[in-house]
């Protein structure tokens, strides 16, 4: 009896230990720009592949464009912006997709065809929750420069 108890305690101890270790060893995911998912990050972390797979068929085969899980929307919201205001592809090392997929050693081929960067750099800057004045000024300056190029 005591042996059984001891082993149960040991198992619990191990689980608690690994769970605790997991917190420290997990990848550091870059913060997204939009508001949090109402379903929670844990839900999306566990189900994003199923949701993306499901919704891609809705768009691709049925022409349904208003979907919950669109790769394009993921990329737009989750891509980080470099110091030069140019978005960093989400499949680059340390970026949103790569950081977990490298950690979990799961290879994805999404970005062999899909672009890993959001469409327009300027839109991305404005999508931020609190764009500060300096950024807005820099953006407007950039718009001017683009205008003179044309």
């Amino acid at each position: 009896m005591t042996r059984l108890l001891a082993s149960i305690l040991l198992v619990f101890g191990l689980i608690a230990g690994t769970a605790h270790a997991g917190e420290n060893l997990g990848p550091e995911v870059p913060e997204a720009l939009g508001p949090p998912h109402p379903e929670g990050n844990a839900y999306w972390r566990a189900n994003h592949m199923k949701l993306l797979l499901h919704d891609r068929d809705l768009t691709m085969r049925l022409g349904e464009r208003e979907i919950e899980a669109s790769l394009k929307a993921c990329v737009t919201c989750h891509a980080q912006t470099g110091p030069d205001a140019v978005p960093i592809p989400v499949n680059e090392s340390g970026q949103f997709c790569a950081v977990c997929h490298e950690f979990a050693a799961v290879r994805i081929d999404c970005f062999q065809c899909h672009t890993a960067s959001p469409d327009v750099a300027s839109v991305r800057l404005l999508l931020r929750k609190y764009p500060d004045e300096a950024e807005l000024v820099a953006f407007l300056e950039g718009m001017k420069l683009e205008g003179t190029d044309e």
């Binding site: 508001p35 109402p38 208003e66 919950e68 929307a73 737009t76 404005l126 999508l127």
Partner: peptide, 16 residues
């Protein structure tokens, strides 16, 4: 389904 809060994509419209 359209009334569901859509994450990410719904916020594409930004008030400047």
């Amino acid at each position: 389904r359209r009334e569901l809060l859509r994450s990410g994509a719904a916020l594409a419209t930004v008030a400047l």
